[in-house]
Design a protein around this nucleic acid. Structure first.
Length: 189
DNA sequence: CTCTCGATGTTCT
DNA sequence: GAACATCGAGAGG
């Protein structure tokens, strides 16, 4: 087990988004490990990216993105869902990777309990995986390099041939060049 | 499988 | 007041 250190997150957001595929996201909740392999990510690339929350400048909500890499940016949306991002690039360059899907590994029973579902619906969406792992706004700004509560560690190496890139989901409001950029990455089954 | 629509509350205009 | 990096239920094929 090797917990990813700060320098992993400091790099280019698109590269980090690809490199996160196959890693293991671990949540320790009341002493129990809930974890899954990262299967889908999206890159949000700073002030210039019209799909990125930081595009319109720093606000209380997105402030974590402007801070050090390797921290969790968790925000609440649609009145009922939390989404998990991992902050990337140098401090002051507000970029992050959205975690969109996991393959459950540990604590599946607890996840089923939290989700009130079984099967693929456990963690195959960005809000679903937050519910399954018990991730909420209390983890906004959490330092992922501490190896407590929430972190990412090495798990599998995904061959580049098994990685697919497509446009990002749910950003109809963004400018065309950003709406259509292939900044969503998935592991092909 | 597809599509449509309502839920629900924080944030920003 | 509108929009929102979503989800699940229900209707139809």
């Amino acid at each position: 087990m090797n917990i990813l250190a700060r320098n992993f997150y400091t790099g280019n957001t698109l590269k980090v988004a690809r490199a996160l595929l196959g890693k293991k996201l671990v949540r320790r909740l009341r002493g129990v490990h809930l974890s899954g392999m990262i299967m889908e990510t999206e890159a949000y690339c700073g002030k210039e990216d019209s799909a990125c929350h930081a595009h319109r400048g720093k606000t209380p909500r997105n402030a974590v993105m402007f801070g050090k890499p390797g921290h969790a940016y968790v925000y609440f949306t649609y009145g009922m869902h939390y989404l998990l991002n991992l902050v990337t690039e140098e401090e002051g360059n507000p970029c992050a990777v959205l975690i969109r899907a996991l393959m459950p590994l540990e604590g599946i029973v607890q996840m089923e309990d939290r989700r009130k579902k079984k099967g693929p619906a456990l963690t195959n969406g960005p809000a679903k995986l937050c519910q399954a792992l018990g991730i909420d706004k209390s983890l906004n700004g959490w330092d992922l390099t501490l190896g407590q509560e929430l972190w990412v560690e090495d798990y599998k190496i995904i061959p580049p041939k098994l990685i697919v890139a497509t446009p990002r989901i749910g950003i109809a409001y963004a400018k065309e060049e950003h709406r259509e950029a292939p900044w969503r990455f998935l592991v092909k089954l």
